[in-house]
């Protein structure tokens, strides 16, 4: 049980190695690299997301071929977009974070890098109103077309239960 606990709370060897080489690959001196439980986390400005994702996927040392998850967290005035990446060949993982102002949630789409991002982005657009530029078809995915509002946001009210 002891070493198991260590395993889940520290970077694994592959991700350690990634942390070593990442600054030289990305070549962005302003970026901060931090460790969150067992994941390497990087905060990105919105305009860098597309270029950095492209490098991360195509560079042979990073080789992030698998976009595990794309999620949006609503912090009232900020919408945070999380990209969880994983590499089958190198077996390391990392998280990219990008903060958007909730008044103007626009970011460039990465669906031309990973095709998996297509529906994830449509879902984020549907529930949170994030606009992904250059997305092939940014329609509503889960909700009906005539639905008004973005129910994922914290400001969207829930039903109050009424007795009939």
């Amino acid at each position: 049980m002891e070493d198991q606990a260590n395993k889940t709370t520290a970077l694994n060897a592959a991700s350690q190695k990634l942390l070593g080489i990442l600054p030289s690959i990305l070549n962005q001196p302003t970026l901060q690299y931090r460790t969150n439980i067992d994941e390497l986390t990087v905060n990105l400005p919105g305009d860098l997301v597309h270029t950095i994702c492209k490098i991360l996927k195509t560079h042979t040392d990073t080789a992030f071929d698998y976009l595990t998850c794309l999620s949006v967290v609503d912090y009232e005035d900020i919408l945070e977009i999380n990209y969880h990446l994983f590499s089958y060949t190198k077996r390391h993982k990392m998280v990219l974070k990008c903060e958007l102002k909730s008044t103007d949630p626009t970011i460039s789409s990465i669906s031309n890098i990973w095709r998996a991002a297509n529906w994830f982005e449509r879902e984020a657009h549907d529930l949170f109103g994030v606009l992904f530029e250059d997305h092939p078809s940014l329609d509503r995915l889960l909700l009906p077309d005539d639905f008004e509002g973005n129910p994922g946001l914290k400001s969207y009210p829930l039903h109050e239960y009424k007795e009939w």
Partner: peptide, 26 residues
């Protein structure tokens, strides 16, 4: 996958489910 954000209160702040069928269906 489950992505869980906590703000220290009794309720989760955000729960995102990375559903396998969702990606497979794509």
């Amino acid at each position: 996958g489950v992505f869980l954000v906590s703000d220290g209160s009794q309720n989760p702040y955000r729960v995102k489910v990375r559903a396998p069928s969702f990606a497979n269906l794509q």
